[in-house]
Design a protein around this nucleic acid. Structure first.
Lengths: 219, 219
DNA sequence: GTTTTTAGTTTGATTAATCAAAGTGCCGTA
DNA sequence: TACGGCACTTTGATTAATCAAACTAAAAAC
């Protein structure tokens, strides 16, 4: 059985390889997103390679093996199903569930997870709009469009929020930036580095480029 | 934050002190019930003493401090609420939930636990009939009567099963020995070391003394 | 094409939890 | 009161995960 630490490394590497969209993930990103020193990451990569979770090329980065990808995907599935449970069943706020799921995902067994999946009605997306991988490890793609790269003056539907931080999520909720809501970009100011938004039945407000990029939309 | 290991030691010591009904718990019992060597237990006790979870007297045993008792009780509460959830909500078999809860109890936060408690309707007993401590750490006493020390020829209600082993629980379920069921001891054979039982709408069967002692009853 | 910077690697040490095996204190029996 | 045996303690070693800090390779800047 892989330790919780191993599970975390593999989930992290899989997620990084999914957004960078290239299989070789550099040390720096890994160390940074797990909050460990670069030396720790290097040492760990060698151990993970020894156990065939990934292949490691010195000063290049790592690539998951299929065994590694499978475990990483399993962890994402666990995490997102747990988040869904915490919000839908227990009624927790979507800004406070990430850390809870982060712990529980290492403790829940396959059997309990599959029961939970049935209990929740086989949800496709978690409360933040992130796709939940199937048991077999298949995951839907996220939309490419966001509030920054989008054509102005068109009403679109919010699909997903790419930030797990409690502060950002609290803010997003207050403003109504949640999956399913309709929104229109009514202005874009390159100098001010911000876009102006209009949500249905809400007053206008603006969002910096960096934040706007985190809101994925469709339609 | 105490580690999962510390949580396990304290829960174990509290449970031992509750059934031996004397505060000083000897090393041997602890090492044995946690499956570690005596040396490991001794070393650990010194560390736990350093952090004020208990007091340790060399070659005598340990006594929990109130801080230690509080944590131990919290773990029992978590364990039993989780078992209740696994059976009542997810529909797992009562023989397979102990080990699942054993893992989850270290990962669930206070906040999630209290939500779960509300969701389950503040249950008083877990699926095996064990009392669930309150949030404040108060726990009901188990009945003293069991199928061995009981007067014969009297119909009594099963309250609790004192064995977490999957095999025994599967057997008990098959025979109908579950909390709430009515049972009568119709014979007792000292030589054969067994009692003969009659459950409502079931055929007679017999149980060894050791097993009969594990079935607590009332009435 | 050097030099500087940045990213990554190595090394030596630490902490928590464990074991095996050698050592010790105590209790009961003779 | 001396002896044996059992319960407990000590010691030395191991494993996983981590860090700080010294080191090195490769990429960027000049």
């Amino acid at each position: 059985m892989p330790s919780a630490t191993v599970e975390n490394y593999l989930k992290c590497i899989l997620m990084l390889s999914m957004d960078c969209d290239q299989s070789e993930v550099p040390m720096g990103l890994i160390a940074n997103s797990l909050g460990v020193t670069p030396g720790t990451a290097t040492t760990m990569m060698k151990n993970l390679q020894r156990e065939k979770w990934l292949t490691y090329k010195s000063r290049k980065g790592v690539t998951l093996t299929s065994k590694g990808r499978r475990l990483g995907m399993k962890m994402i599935r666990r995490h997102r199903l747990l988040e869904t449970f915490l919000v839908d069943t227990l009624g927790l706020d979507w800004s406070e569930i990430h850390d809870e799921a982060e712990e529980l995902e290492h403790a829940i067994s396959e059997k309990v997870l599959e029961r939970l999946d049935v209990f929740l009605g086989n949800p496709q997306y978690d409360p933040h709009g992130h796709p939940i991988p199937t048991k077999g490890g298949v995951i839907r793609k996220l939309p490419q469009k966001n509030l920054l790269n989008l054509a102005m003056g068109k009403k679109v539907k919010i699909e997903s929020i790419l930030d797990q931080g409690s502060d950002f999520l609290k803010f997003a909720q207050k403003k109504g930036l949640m999956p399913g809501k309709l929104v229109e970009v009514i202005q874009r100011d390159e100098m001010a580095d911000s876009v102006e938004l209009q949500l249905e039945k809400k007053s206008k407000f603006s969002l910096g480029f960096k934040s706007a990029e985190k809101i994925l939309v469709s339609g």
